[in-house]
Amino acid sequence: MILDQPIKKWFVDRTGEDTNIKSFVKSVSWRIVGTIDTIIISYIITGQLSMAISIGSVEVVSKILLYYLHERAWEKMTKVKIEADTEEDYR
């Protein structure tokens, strides 16, 4: 495929690690899958498509907010405290 290599450069860096773009695309695609799942389950339970879509719409916003708060909490809990360097360390 002609575009295979240029597209791979978007998703994998020179060291073979995933790029930020790949992580972002995966996050969005996973959120879409999760929301579709919620809509389907809501439809099975309620039998109303409009209600299922409403629940899915609220869910997508709430899950994004909850994920953000979850990430911030993990960042604070796992952050290693580094003592401030003194000027003597640089002399």
Rank of each mutant, 00 (worst) to 15 (best):
I2E: 06
L3C: 09
D4I: 03
P6E: 04
P6Y: 06
I7K: 05
K8G: 00
K8V: 05
K9E: 14
K9T: 14
K9V: 04
W10K: 06
W10C: 07
V12Y: 11
D13T: 03
D13A: 00
R14M: 07
R14Y: 09
T15C: 02
G16L: 03
G16H: 01
G16Y: 05
D18P: 03
D18G: 03
T19K: 07
N20Q: 15
I21P: 00
K22L: 11
K22T: 01
S23R: 14
V25M: 08
V25W: 04
K26W: 09
K26G: 10
S27L: 09
S27A: 15
S29R: 11
S29W: 13
W30N: 12
W30Q: 15
W30E: 09
W30T: 14
W30K: 13
R31N: 11
I32P: 01
G34D: 15
G34C: 09
T35S: 09
T35P: 00
T35C: 00
I36R: 07
D37E: 10
D37G: 10
I39L: 02
I40M: 06
I41D: 07
S42A: 14
S42I: 08
I44R: 03
I45L: 14
I45D: 10
T46F: 04
G47S: 03
Q48P: 05
Q48E: 10
Q48A: 15
L49P: 01
L49D: 02
L49S: 05
L49G: 00
M51L: 06
I53S: 07
S54L: 12
G56P: 12
S57E: 14
S57F: 08
S57N: 07
V58T: 10
E59K: 09
V60C: 04
S62G: 07
K63L: 10
K63A: 13
K63G: 07
I64D: 11
I64H: 04
L66M: 06
Y67C: 08
Y67R: 06
H70P: 07
E71I: 05
E71T: 07
R72H: 02
R72S: 02
A73C: 04
A73P: 00
W74R: 11
E75M: 05
E75Q: 03
K76E: 14
K79D: 00
K79L: 00
K79C: 02
V80S: 08
V80Y: 03
V80P: 02
K81R: 05
I82Q: 09
I82D: 05
A84I: 08
D85K: 04
